[in-house]
Simulated assay, not measured.
Amino acid sequence: MSQIQNVAELLDDAARAARSVQQVDPEGRLSVADAYAIQAASIERRVQRGERRVGVKMGFTSRAKMIQMGIDDVIWGRLSSGMQVEEGSALKRSRFIHPRVEPEIAFVLKKDLAGDVTAAEALAAVEAVAPALEIIDSRYRDFKFSLTDVIADNASSSGFVVGAWNDPRQDFSNLGLTMNIDGRTVQVGSTAAILGHPLRSLVAAARLSAAAGEPLRAGWIVMAGGATPAEWIAPGQYVSVEMERLGVAGFHVGE
């Protein structure tokens, strides 16, 4: 078995068992291409178990995070059907190692979108937009990782919740939002924090996924990236995002 397959199996098993592992590339010896190959192989194991690909998620969509990680482009991960949590339902905390949550805006596509597209072309492919929450959960001990570590680990993506879908023909470039836990506001932000405009994240998603031979498909969801810092979650909480004009999305945290 190749190193790519070995690491993919390690990370997939860690996610399934909700147990942390040591970094796989602490010295940064893997290439970014190797890291994405590990991610693809890990997600393919889920598909072989019966899950479906349902979209992609974007990461490091704030300039501050790019600078912190020493990169000049976003990263991306793959979404599968097993990651989706129904809005308003209960999330099993025991499925995760050390989960956090961040507010995002989500797109659903009405037609395929691939390659180098303009913002206008990206918008024309959008069926609807919605407030959303992403559950991130690194499989690495103490949430400590290098760039290649996090890419291999599906960009820390572990779950997502999407609220009601809205007409995309409105200005969603700078919508105010709050993230709340048990009715208390814990983060305040704007969709403008996502690359200055969330559409730029969708443009990047089309470019990066096509380059990997997996162009965005009609019906897929694209999670545009965190609009605020993430918050830890714990059993018994109710977590929600309230987004200007788009509404609310939330979930309960079970045991």
Rank of each mutant, 00 (worst) to 15 (best):
F251H: 09
G70P: 06
A125D: 03
D153R: 01
E121Q: 15
A90S: 15
R141Y: 10
M66H: 03
L175R: 00
F160Q: 05
I181R: 14
V248F: 14
D137K: 06
G70Y: 07
Q84K: 13
I135Q: 15
R19I: 13
W165A: 02
Q187C: 03
G236I: 12
E102N: 02
S80W: 07
E255V: 06
G225L: 01
G163N: 11
V222Y: 10
N174F: 07
R200P: 04
W76N: 07
A114G: 08
A155M: 06
S62Q: 13
R100N: 07
Q68I: 04
G82T: 11
L202E: 01
S156R: 07
A40K: 10
L195S: 02
L177G: 00
A205L: 00
R200K: 09
F143I: 12
P131N: 15
V248I: 15
Q22D: 14
A164T: 15
D25G: 10
D13G: 07
A120T: 13
F60D: 04
L109M: 08
R139T: 01
V32R: 03
T185Y: 09
A119R: 06
G250I: 13
M243W: 13
G226L: 01
S138E: 06
D34R: 04
D73K: 11
Y140A: 00
W220R: 02
T178M: 12
K57H: 04
P26N: 06
E9S: 14
G163W: 14
L123T: 03
V239H: 09
Q187A: 11
L208Y: 15
G213D: 04
F251N: 11
D116H: 10
Q237F: 07
R95Y: 12
S80A: 10
W220T: 01
R93M: 15
A204Y: 00
A120G: 06
A192Q: 09
P235A: 13
A106T: 04
V56F: 12
D112K: 03
V32M: 11
W220D: 02
G28C: 05
R53W: 10
T228K: 04
H98M: 10
S157V: 11
I136M: 07
S20Q: 12
G213N: 08
G226A: 14
Q237V: 07
R63E: 10
S80Y: 09
L208T: 05
E214M: 10
A204S: 13
I38H: 08
A204H: 07
Q3R: 13
A164R: 14
G28S: 05
V253N: 09
T61Q: 01
I233K: 13
L11N: 11
D116I: 05
V117Q: 04
